[in-house]
Nucleic acid binder design. Structure first.
Lengths: 309, 309
DNA sequence: CTGAAAGCGCTAACAA
DNA sequence: TTGTTAGCGCTTTCAG
């Protein structure tokens, strides 16, 4: 009766009286006791690498939206300062503390075993021996970005990649390579940044040294691209007249960059949303190997133009 | 023994054997049962308005750092899509589900009653009838920003404020007013944006209409400032030659803006850190009315210069 | 010092 | 259909 069970046969008036009493007495069911009893919590966890990178904001938003729609509470934490965060959430989630965990981090130990105490799903990362992941089509996005430069007439195109240890970075690099090959072009210099402003900024020297004749750069993300823009400016290079820059992932602030940055957007909100749906709707034992098919889109701004010569 | 209680007298060898057994059997204490028994959870909650605004990333970072240092788990959620998020966390926290809650949102119903089931603290918001808050010195930051323009020689300075319902926005506006008054200047036009890119962008028209002779603008935050920069560019106005722009709160990406945006940084990390410390170290019944004293700093970039005429 | 037992508040199973 | 009870796993208390 306290749970307002509709299967329970009782007069509507009685129901009302109970509800009234519950309200007046301020009765709050003890969730802890309930969780102990049922080994469920109506709560989902999400571990992201950090809160700085704005792409996670969108993923979280999508995940929260879907969780809310299903009456679940989503709690988020980052592994930025604590490599053991995934393990911590696994502990939190054991014995029904969490009904499921989404893992967006890429640490060595961030892939739970198959017999983990909580259902889990990796976000945009494949891992050796795991068959539970939801991917963005990073390769297609990088391919799209590279093709955009090629379509403008560029042939000498460099790539500022993400860190070697990130699996998604590898898929982007591979999309860049494929696009070049598809158009019969030799890949240009590939330099490793680390998805950060500083990484992109310090890579500027190497980029200019590696290929003086480079007219376009495909950058693995916005933060690196912003660093690159600042670096190029410092070297007296003009974007896009001297060199075109395009980055993967979009963000509103990219429109305020100098110059406004052309990007390729990815379905981040949908990834968060879909991840929660998959986590709740599938058997934790089943494999999930899914890539989000749509939502890759060119956002043209002012950092790309045909090569001058 | 299982808790490795140091008060317990036992041979070191025995301790080792127990630890070994615990490890081998993979024993994990049931946190739920423990919470039910002790009405504590070693977990803290933080509710932020959204994940998009990058300032929250820094606050969360500070809070996570302090929580980690104290062996607590911090969980985060946003109220972006769900106005009832604070209530939801209050429910989560009742009966020891959370040891405390930090509230950074500013909704009408986001101030818990004094007899809330969980200790709580408001972040950068004073609320009618509450005496539990930790503030940034928004007034000082706005004063600093305004003074920076005045020091450059500006006298016709406008203010692009935050939304009227945000208490922090009011403190910034008041800092702007005071700085103007301190230098014997009449306040310029004050326009309300909503802390967003779009808000700043659409306010451009009104700003240019309100004061044609305006040579400087103090913007309440970076997102609005980025929208304003784009808007001014669209109107053919050159920053800083035609008009100087300075914003409150700093972010690395502001260095990539067109032009790089001069800002005043705030001690956001420290706010997160201090908030966790206060939440854990004070009696939940005691009043906390604290403002973080230091950490306000001018970050000079290229969007500010002396007025031309 | 060691071991047994009560009980946190809930739900599910069972008995009436 | 309704009311009663056992028990989730832990900590704390109390008896041995």
């Amino acid at each position: 009766m306290l749970n307002d069970d509709p299967a329970l046969r009782a007069r509507e008036e009685t129901r009302q009286r109970v509800r009234q009493a519950v309200k007046e007495l301020g009765y709050q069911p003890n969730r802890i006791a309930r969780s102990l009893r049922t080994a469920t919590s109506n709560t989902l966890g999400l571990v992201i690498p950090n809160f700085e990178n704005p792409i996670w904001a969108v993923v979280v938003d999508g995940a929260e939206t879907e969780a809310d729609a299903r009456g679940k509470t989503l709690i988020v934490a980052s592994a930025a300062r604590t490599p053991g965060r995934v393990q911590q959430f696994l502990d939190l989630g054991a014995h029904g503390g969490l009904d499921g965990i989404l893992i967006a981090t890429a640490g060595q130990t961030d892939t739970p075993p198959a017999d983990a105490p909580v259902p889990w799903l990796l976000l945009n990362r494949r891992a050796e021996g795991s068959r539970r992941y939801l991917l963005l089509d990073d390769e297609a996005a990088a391919h799209r970005a590279t093709t955009a430069l090629i379509d403008l007439g560029h042939t000498r195109i460099a790539h500022l990649s993400g860190p070697a240890h990130a699996e998604s970075a590898g898929r982007r690099t591979s999309g860049y390579r494929k696009a070049m090959a598809d158009h019969g072009l030799a890949p240009g210099p590939i330099l490793e940044a680390d998805y950060s402003f500083t990484g992109g900024n310090t890579a500027t020297d190497a980029l200019l040294a590696a290929g003086a004749e480079t007219t376009g750069v495909v950058v693995a993300n916005i933060a690196s691209a912003s660093g690159l823009l600042v670096g190029l400016r410092a070297h007296g290079k003009h974007v896009p007249d001297d060199i075109s820059v395009i980055a993967i992932h979009d963000h509103p602030l990219a429109g305020a960059f100098d110059p406004p940055l052309t990007t390729v957007s990815m379905p981040l909100f949908e990834m968060g949303r879909r991840a929660v749906a998959l986590l709740l709707d599938t058997d934790p034992q089943d494999a999930i190997e899914e890539t989000i098919p749509d939502g890759i889109e060119l956002i043209p701004r002012a950092s790309t133009a045909p090569p001058k010569a």
